[in-house]
Design a binder for these strands. Sequence first.
DNA 1: TCAGATTGCTAGTTAAACTAGCAATACCTC
DNA 2: GAGGTATTGCTAGTTTAACTAGCAATCTGA
Lengths: 157, 157
Amino acid sequence: MSERWLPQTNHEHAVMRVLTSIRAVSDAMERMHSGMKGDMDMNASDVAALRLLIIRERQARSVSPRDIARHLRISTASTTKLLDRLVESGHVERRPHPSDGRGRVVVLTEDARNVFFRVFGDRLRAMRSVAMEYDDAELAVIARFLDDLCGAMDPEG
Amino acid sequence: MSERWLPQTNHEHAVMRVLTSIRAVSDAMERMHSGMKGDMDMNASDVAALRLLIIRERQARSVSPRDIARHLRISTASTTKLLDRLVESGHVERRPHPSDGRGRVVVLTEDARNVFFRVFGDRLRAMRSVAMEYDDAELAVIARFLDDLCGAMDPEG
DNA sequence: TCAGATTGCTAGTTAAACTAGCAATACCTC
DNA sequence: GAGGTATTGCTAGTTTAACTAGCAATCTGA
């Protein structure tokens, strides 16, 4: 997480500590997701696709196979197979795109939502109760930091 | 990231916003790592193993194949293959464990350190300069939050 | 209008995980 | 100590999920 750069001042130590912690959180998140292999009959990519669908649904934005391919950084061919798995397991459906004859719209089934929250519910609740301990001003700082960081890491998002 | 839970108060909205942001950061991190597929001749697991080695080295803690298997949540058989790849590409070496005849100690080559920082350097600098913008008190709050969150997500770490 | 781009798919290939089981070594109980 | 059990890292063979190449259908812009 560092470079040959070594923190000197107290402030630099604090910076280093935050970057180390963010890495730890990110690793924990990754393990949590890839750990779904065991908890449900799904691999990490399938879960990631499901998460994208859940998030986009909350934003009332539709998701195409192309979107999934871009988000997961996999080929459209792999995405077709991924969707085949999710369709076959009854988690999503392919619908024709309303205006683009080539495209598809991928939608969650109610079953998928249930499974997702059954598996992630405890973890989400635990995370939420951690955040609940912080006041508005603190949360504002944290959110601003995270958004800045995100922008620095990955311009497109 | 949410559940059927919907934020009501301002505070709950702030909580939600932070959890959404942390997800975004985590996704960006994951894409950054899996994006290494393109930037170097390595897959995400190999990079993750390399990161573990870099971090542990800084803590002066040795790393066994077993440690890597546990950290990446893959089998020891897969870890053997992973190490074969990294040894063959000249990024790590297997050394005998000093006190346990069964075990090995995996150590980085100088070459691996160079490659790692060449690829991640820009990103790490960008992240660091984001954190630099925050004062000690803010960084302390952020670090505490992240550590709390980590504890909530993944007790063992 | 039509040349080029984009979408999602199939087919076949490759990479990296998996399970099962092995010998060598360590640890624990008597 | 001696013997049984656990742990480590490995090999062999299998399965999964990514990849590339190329297709028809559709959209877009000059």
